[in-house]
Design a protein around this nucleic acid. Structure first.
Length: 362
DNA sequence: TATATTTGACCCTC
DNA sequence: GAGGGTCAAATATA
């Protein structure tokens, strides 16, 4: 437990520091002519860092809550409860490799591999057998009928297993209750080049021009899957409630749950986390939470996604505009945590929270 | 021809 | 022993 928290606090600190550094970099970039893409990328990294930090904080604050969330999906496996907490996620790295190496010699069946579950939904018209676009190249190596399950389970492993020794695998199981939902169980960490990409690669022309996907409505940032998958296990969210006639739109996975956060909470979070970052404060005040900005525009909109910075830049204000950018962005694979689909309740964080004080956690 | 998928069999864990 | 995970040969596809 201590180890878990130790890892978590390190991760948390790292994320916050990283966010600060990237914000600083962005601040410098804003002074010089720079590509919008690069700025977007930096903003995404900042957001990603804070999303992760929030998750860590939140998950530690309420393990039971997390378990409850997981329970909602009925898919989180007992051996990796709250794997996002770090220990298992952490072990997932080297541990996974060791495990695989052992397995390679003496077992056809993976032993106690750290694993975590995600749920994704594809649109009705997809006609596809499963969600495949998660940013990694997977190779199907098996399919099994599972007792009591209506649909067979598919087994995938990283394409680079042989060439790069990447032992990441995933299982895709179509939900009995809702065939549009796929439970995806990830195992092992990507050690291939895809998994090592810390920064999002440029979008391929294909993807850039790809219109709203009508097949698979979630898109994952290629190369950021490592981060993605780390958080997916706690994002095993039931999406049933998202139906409500929303299938008229392509299904989207909100990349963050900031939409559920109140302005107050954001106010208390961002400026305190970046106490010395007047820039971000300015950005935040000016673009995100300007008093003149209608409250419903951004953060309080239940459908708003934090990674919709394009929308912010464009100062879109109507609900329809927001919906539009959300739809659009589902095909723009630039969010580091595109599947971030669990709703944070308002987070109470002390404005004076000593994020950068390692001793705080001990 | 190279790469990906399918599928039956093998083997491990519970 | 049942169920599930993986292997690997056969087959399909680009």
């Amino acid at each position: 437990m201590e180890n878990e928290w130790s890892w978590e606090q390190n991760t948390l600190i790292n994320e916050l520091i990283q966010g600060m550094e990237v914000a600083r970099k962005l601040k410098e970039d804003l002074r010089t002519p720079y590509s919008v893409d690069t700025r977007d990328s930096l903003v995404q990294r900042i957001l990603s860092s804070y999303e992760k930090a929030l998750l860590i904080l939140r998950c530690n604050a309420s393990t039971s809550e997390l378990q409850a969330m997981s329970q909602a999906t009925a898919t989180l496996l007992p051996e990796s409860p709250i794997s996002v907490h770090g220990s298992s996620m952490h072990e997932e790295g080297d541990g996974a490799i060791k495990d695989h190496q052992e397995v390679k010699h003496d077992s056809k069946k993976r032993k106690t591999m750290p694993k975590w579950v995600d749920q994704v939904r594809v649109s009705c018209e997809s006609g596809l057998e499963g969600p495949h676009e998660d940013g990694y190249n997977w190779r199907k190596y098996g399919q099994k009928d599972i007792l009591g399950a209506k649909y067979p389970r598919s087994y995938y492993r990283c394409t680079f297993r042989n060439t790069q020794g990447c032992w990441a695998t995933k299982q895709v199981q179509r939900s009995d209750e809702d065939p549009t939902i796929f439970d995806i169980t990830y195992r092992g960490k990507h050690t291939c080049s895809q998994g090592n990409n810390a920064v999002l690669p440029p979008k391929s022309p294909d993807k850039q021009e790809k219109p709203h996907s009508h097949n698979i409505d979630i898109h994952h940032a290629q190369g950021s899957q490592e981060n993605l998958t780390k958080f997916r296990n706690i994002l095993a969210v039931s999406t049933d409630k998202l139906d409500n006639g929303d299938m008229a739109h392509p299904f989207t996975f909100p990349s963050t749950s900031f939409g559920c956060m109140s302005q107050e909470n954001l106010h208390s979070l961002i400026p305190s986390a970046l106490a010395n970052e007047s820039f971000l404060s300015d950005l935040y005040q000016t673009h995100l939470l300007s008093p003149t900005t209608p409250e419903s525009n951004y953060f309080s909109s239940p459908t708003f996604q934090m990674n919709e910075f394009d929308g912010i830049y464009n100062k879109l204000h109507s609900e329809s505009d927001i919906n539009e950018i959300i739809s659009t962005n589902t095909s723009a694979t630039n969010s580091p945590i595109p599947n971030f689909n669990f709703s944070l309740d308002p987070v109470e964080i002390d404005p004076n929270f000593p994020f950068n004080t390692p001793g705080f956690f001990s």
